[in-house]
């Protein structure tokens, strides 16, 4: 794996890795360890060191229906965004890969939302989907009160899901397109000779061959929806209405920094970490066994 190794000056080698190791230790390993420590301890009311409480914080978290609500909301959000993102970006990549006139313009333009900051995308979508200004509000003129993300939890969820999906499609699209373009041309041409039409080739050759990419993106999108959604929620819904969009990462922020309960937030962080670790492990396993057809 690491086969190069031409130089042997060990002091120089150490000097080159120390800065990053130091940063990683201070900003990654230490905080992660501290989260574990906090999750199993409670702060003393009158100062002094923390008191060991075992699983108490986790018990508090798991007994709280608000927590289970945020888990449920996160799962719905993750499933909905991932489904939309994968299906739309794969379809677009398949169509662009047919290389009809103009395909370069499309592949250029579809990538642009990648550059959007989450809060900027959130604010833009909040305007476009506002119940009393902008565009979608027009349907309220025909059917009064049918659309109002400020009061209706379902509408709010639709809003944040669409925003996250819009922001991520470009990123996923370029991966699918790259995967499709790496399929050898003779393969496609041979199947065309054998009488497979364009749709048939998409379904029976191209889609199976991009499965590794699809699986990889599936995990990336699930992880992203758990960790990268804060900006959108904070600008559009603040987790509301009535906690309908109270995603786990938003709840951690709220419990930790607004309610100042570090132990509770740490326990919630640990659960989220475990979730992300499991997803990442699945991804690593898959990367190792990645199938190479070409």
């Amino acid at each position: 794996m690491l086969r190069h190794a031409a130089f042997t000056n060990i002091w120089l080698a150490a000097a080159l890795v120390v800065p990053q190791l130091l940063l990683v230790f201070i900003f990654f390993y230490w905080p992660t360890g501290e989260a574990l420590y906090w999750a199993f301890t409670l702060e003393q009311p009158f100062g002094g060191s923390n008191q060991w409480v075992g699983w108490l914080n986790f018990a508090t978290v798991f007994k709280d229906p608000k927590y289970w609500n945020s888990v449920q909301v996160s799962i719905i959000f993750a499933a909905a965004t991932t489904a939309i993102i994968i299906s739309v970006s794969l379809s677009l990549a398949l169509l662009v890969d047919r290389r009809l006139p103009g395909h370069q313009i499309y592949s250029f333009a579809y990538f642009i939302p990648y550059a959007m900051a989450a809060p900027a995308a959130g604010l833009a979508f909040r305007f476009i989907f506002s119940p009393n200004a902008g565009f979608v509000a027009a349907i309220n003129n025909w059917f009064p009160n049918i659309w109002n993300p400020a009061t209706d939890g379902f509408d709010a969820m639709v809003l944040v899901v669409l925003c996250q999906a819009w922001k991520s499609i470009g990123y996923n699209f370029v991966f699918f397109l790259a995967a499709l373009q790496s399929i050898p041309r003779p393969l496609t041409e041979a199947s065309a000779m054998d009488g497979a039409g364009a749709m048939r080739r998409m379904w029976d050759i191209q889609v199976p061959l991009v499965m590794p990419t699809l699986f990889f993106l599936l995990i990336i999108n699930l992880t992203d929806s758990f960790v990268d959604s804060f900006g959108i929620i904070d600008i559009t819904t603040h987790g509301g209405p009535a906690r309908a969009t109270d995603l786990m990462v938003y709840k951690i922020y709220f419990d930790g920094f607004k309610a100042q309960d570090y132990s509770l937030a740490a326990a919630e962080s640990i659960v989220l970490m475990l979730l992300v670790i499991v997803l990442t492990f699945i991804q690593f396993r898959f990367v190792e066994r990645r199938v190479h057809y070409a």
């Binding site: 190791l21 990683v24 501290e34 989260a35 990268d228 962080s269 970490m273 670790i277 990442t280």
Partner: peptide
């Protein structure tokens, strides 16, 4: 591996203790 593992946990999930650091 010590560096690679950090890919696993983005800043957002360990935000509270990182803030304390």
């Amino acid at each position: 591996w010590a560096i690679f593992i950090t890919l696993m946990l983005p800043l957002e999930v360990r935000i509270v203790p990182t803030y304390a650091v």
